[in-house]
Structure formats: structure tokens, C-alpha cells
Design a binder for these strands. Structure first.
Lengths: 310, 310
DNA sequence: CTCAGCGGGAGGTCCCCTCAC
DNA sequence: GTGAGGGGACCTCCCGCTGAG
């Protein structure tokens, strides 16, 4: 069973997603999970909570449609009336008192995005001084170490392991100031390690290793948390999908002024680039032609590309 | 607090969704939940399970990328290695042995979609005979009752309350034949009532009320489960969103031959219809112009409509 | 029929610990 | 470091029951 070829034989790629016998809705969930968790850095539990919140809102919506009837709503979704009541209270508290539900809120969790700012604020570095604030080294040793660091570092000094830990505690505290007191959670070791691992994994923070140092030091490498270069594109993608979904909602409701277009076609490989460019120009000139300031607000979302399956 | 105007003051509409401080990812989750649960008829728990499955797959994907390292994967998503191991086993069993994960699978749950077929199979009706198979009525009374039924009924006779219950038990059994034995659940009363309520709520089944009948009878009104007329449109919408998401995945990965277009513009109300029609024709002729059988498989997804916010 | 309450059980998310390789 | 095992807390979902209006 366990052999050297294990890692090869079980080399499932992301393409497996499309091979799974999943419905369209399942696929959307999957793409969402992959992007928010892998790229966005959200916790497993955070995604589950966000999905539950969406489902709860759906229940609440039906509850209103059914004339605030707990039992009917419960039957429709196979939920106990008791539980429906709790859900309704939760949603209403959120809508009326502005209490936050458990959502994904920002593209990345605050405890990851907030670190660069907090680090620079708490441990600033001034031009001309050493980034290493530790008396155990000679000036020459400090210079040697600093020379080994990456270029274009933010205005922040290095931290030793203890300071880094303290900073993460502070970061966690800061990330919870918006939460009601009953939902605030003290930072567990597991959570702390999760945050540290994420920061190092993304390259936002890098360990500084040297025989000169007795304990590990850490350096802030960027002013933003960015797991990959794809970050902005993923963000744009999710917003596009949300808007696309919204537009199709209107189409389903048969609202006027909404159009859905689906074109399936084959194209000669040599023509592909020219065709796409022509399409781009065509749409821009179309939008320009009809554009009129102060008119009806419109938006067009489109994606063209390789068709799979069949 | 509790007043007569409560139902009015709390008359939140679906538009509230957009007013919520939700991120794009949260909005997508919300739209998904609303459509699969309200229109699709999926249970609350089924949606949660499907979301969990997507997240599990995401974990599994990372697990492979990290060289099958339980601990690292756990740190990345704040999950215990022990739990990661269970999740990995679950996903691998699904991929390799074809065991079904808990997904939304079909647009509607099988126990709703399958009913019309099962009813017609188990309790068929032949032209010329009475749809009411009960000796407690005179022939004239049967005719009178049948005359009160809707037109265009499927080839199935009426059921009394007991037969209806039995049919639901059978339906539940049938819906579980694909599941491994350990995941099969016996039909609980709550579940049974949920299914009955859904069927009646959607109009697929209608109660037959008459002073002539001592116990309730039920009639099958359609050959397909269809909660609303929007059914096909919602189905198409979710597929569109999934494909759109897939296309943008390629765009994020900077694969060649993929294009994303976002046009924001205003339009004079009088021009709107003409502009949309022009766009439709324009795209079709563009696709026709470049279409070449046997060429590179392409697909274009587009939605235009009212822009909100701002 | 609706709403209300009280049980129990299973499973999942979290927390922490030790021990062998 | 990693895998594997132990413990326990808490919550949610799911099931069943009874009683008050």
C-alpha cells in the first residue's frame, strides 16, 4: 500500500474538481472555498460559519414570507421551530442593532491583513539606525546581518521570537475590538501558531537565520499581506462573480433591462487572439456609443474562454 | 416593542441583502443559499453539508500541495492534524472508491423530484376507471369528486393519507439506495413531515377536501416537481455562475485565450431596449463570423443590467 | 394548530496533553 | 518536526416527548 509512488499515484490536481460528479451549485461552492481559503487565508471554521450565516439569512427570508410562522419555516427547511426562533433572533439583531454575523467580511482575515501596519507602528525603524535592536551583537555583525536581508524592506525593525509572539497577541486583540464582548475569544496556542504559520507561509514575514543569533529573529518583508501575486485578480474575480450573480437574479425575476447571453462556438486557433481583441474593441465602442451621463446606471459583465467538458 | 405594525416594520425584502455589510464572497454564498434552499427545496442541513464538503476538498487540495503533510495543512487552516486526517480519508474514499460526499448533487433533492414518477408507477390510473379507489363512496359521488379536480392530471390515482405516507417512506428508501449503508438514515417523523410540506407547498401534490371523505385524500397534479415557474431559469442561472467562475479561474491563472470584460456606463432610458438588442445581434454575428467547426472550444458568458450601489 | 418547554444522542469544532519515529 | 494517540469543553443538528393557549 504505502510505496514510494504514493505521492505520484495520488497526484490529484485542481482539475479533479471538474471531474467530480458535482452540480453547478457544488462547483460554485468549491471555487469559493478554494479561493477564500487558499488564497484569501480564511480559516476552515470561518468558511463554515459564513456558509451557515448565508443559510440562516435564507431561513429568515422565508420566515418573513410565511408571515413570521416558525413552524412552517421549520418544515420547509427541515429545521426545528426552536432553532428557527434562535436564527431569526440572530438575524434581526444583526439587521436592527448592527451586530455582526459571522461572515468572511474582508477578503482576508483582519489578523493577517493588519499585521504589517501594526508592526510598523509598534516597532518603527528610522533611516540610519540599525534594524536589529539587540545588544548581543557587535556593530559589524549587525551590518553583516542587515546586508543579508531582502531589499525594499518596510520601515520596521526586526523582532525576536518573543516580540513576534507579543505582536501576534496584540494583533489578535486588535482584530476583536469590533466584536461584541461575548464573542471575543482569548488567543489560543493553536490559533497563534496558525497565524504565525500563515504569515511565514505567505512570505509577509521571513525568519532570519544566522549562527550569530541565539534565538530566531523575524523580518517584515512587505507593507501588505499578499500570499501570492494573484491576490488582486482573485479579489476582482469574486467581485465579478457576485455582480454576475446579482445581474442574473434580475434576469430570473424577469426584470426589464436585463439580458443574459451565452454563446457556444469553436474558433480556429490562429484567429483566437484577433477575435478576442475585436470583441473587446466592439464592446467598448458599443458602450461609448450609448453612454449618456446621468442616464440609467448599467453594468456589463463578461467572460470568454476555453469551454470544457462534453 | 411588539405592536401591530411589527410585520410592516420588519418587512425586510431580499434587497436587504445588498444593504448588508457583506463582502463579495458573502454575497455569492447568500445568493447560492437563497436559490438552492428557497427555489431548489434543499434542506438547511444539506446546504451546510455541501459547504463543508467544498471546504474539505479545499483542505485536501492543500494537503497534496504540502506533500501530504497533515500538520502543515492543519496550521494553514487552523484545523487539528487529527481532523485533517479524517477529512483526507473522506475525500480520498470519494475520489477513489466513488463514495458520495454530501453535496447538493441535483438541483432539487431526489426525494422531491422522484415523487411524481414513483406515484405513477406505484398507483397508476387507467383511462375509463375512477381515480378514487375507495369503496366508501357511490359511483355518483366519485364522479362528483373527480369533476372538482384540476385538469390535465398525470396518470395516477388519488391516495388517502395512509397511502400517501407509505409512498413517502418508499420515496425515502429509494433516495438512499445510492448511499453506503452506514450513511443511510431511517425516515424520521420530522423528515417525513418536511417532505410532505414541501410537496404540498410547491403544489406538486394537492389535498382533496370534501365532506364526503372521512380522511384526507391527495392528488398528484404534475409529472415534475416544480416549486415555481422560475425553476428552469434558476437552474440556468446557477450553471451560468459556475461556468463564469470557471472562466475567471483561468483568467486569474493568466491562461491564454481568456478574456474578462467589465463595462460600466449610463444609458438613456429610451435607448435601452435598442442598445441591448444591438448588443445581442452584434455578439451573435461576431461568434458566427469566427466560428469554425472542429476549432478550439470556446464559450462566452455575459450579463448586462441595472447597476446598483454608489 | 401554534407555540412552548424539556429530554437525549451524535458529530463537529475547538482546546490541551503525551509519546514514538 | 511529524504522526498518532489520549483527554475534555462546547455547540449544533437531529430525534423524540409533553403541555399551554
Amino acid at each position: 500500500m504505502a510505496s514510494l509512488s504514493d505521492s505520484a499515484s495520488a497526484n490529484h490536481s485542481p482539475d479533479d474538481i471538474e471531474a467530480l460528479p458535482a452540480s453547478a451549485a457544488d462547483q460554485v461552492l468549491l471555487y469559493l472555498a478554494l479561493n477564500t481559503m487558499k488564497v484569501g487565508g480564511h480559516r476552515y471554521g470561518a468558511f463554515l460559519d459564513a456558509a451557515a450565516t448565508a443559510a440562516k439569512f435564507s431561513i429568515y427570508s422565508t420566515y418573513l414570507e410565511q408571515g413570521r410562522n416558525l413552524r412552517k419555516t421549520g418544515f420547509l427547511y427541515h429545521v426545528e421551530p426552536k432553532r428557527v426562533r434562535v436564527i431569526v433572533k440572530e438575524v434581526e439583531a444583526a439587521l436592527e442593532e448592527g451586530k455582526a454575523l459571522k461572515t468572511l467580511a474582508s477578503q482576508e482575515p483582519y489578523y493577517l491583513v493588519g499585521l504589517p501596519h501594526l508592526w510598523q507602528e509598534q516597532y518603527p525603524w528610522k533611516q540610519g539606525t540599525s534594524r536589529i535592536d539587540w545588544n548581543g551583537l557587535l556593530a559589524s555583525e549587525k551590518e553583516e546581518l542587515e546586508a543579508s536581508l531582502p531589499d525594499n524592506l518596510p520601515q520596521a525593525r526586526l523582532l525576536n521570537a518573543f516580540e513576534f509572539d507579543e505582536l501576534i497577541v496584540l494583533l489578535h486583540t486588535q482584530s476583536q475590538i469590533d466584536l461584541p464582548s461575548e464573542r471575543r475569544i482569548s488567543l489560543s496556542d493553536a490559533m497563534s501558531e496558525h497565524i504565525k504559520f500563515r504569515l511565514l507561509h505567505s512570505g509577509t514575514v521571513m525568519p532570519v537565520e544566522s549562527p550569530l543569533l541565539k534565538i530566531p529573529f523575524y523580518v517584515l518583508t512587505r507593507t501588505t499581506y499578499a500570499p501570492r501575486g494573484e491576490r488582486e485578480r482573485v479579489f476582482a474575480m469574486i467581485q465579478d462573480v457576485a455582480r454576475f450573480f446579482q445581474l442574473l437574479q434580475d434576469w430570473v425575476a424577469e426584470k426589464p433591462g436585463v439580458m443574459r447571453i451565452l454563446e457556444v462556438f469553436d474558433i480556429a486557433p490562429a484567429d483566437k487572439d484577433a477575435a478576442l481583441k475585436e470583441l473587446d474593441v466592439m464592446l467598448k465602442s458599443w458602450a461609448d456609443k450609448y453612454h449618456k451621463d446621468g442616464g440609467f446606471n448599467m453594468i456589463l459583465q463578461m467572460a470568454v474562454g476555453n469551454r470544457r467538458g462534453e
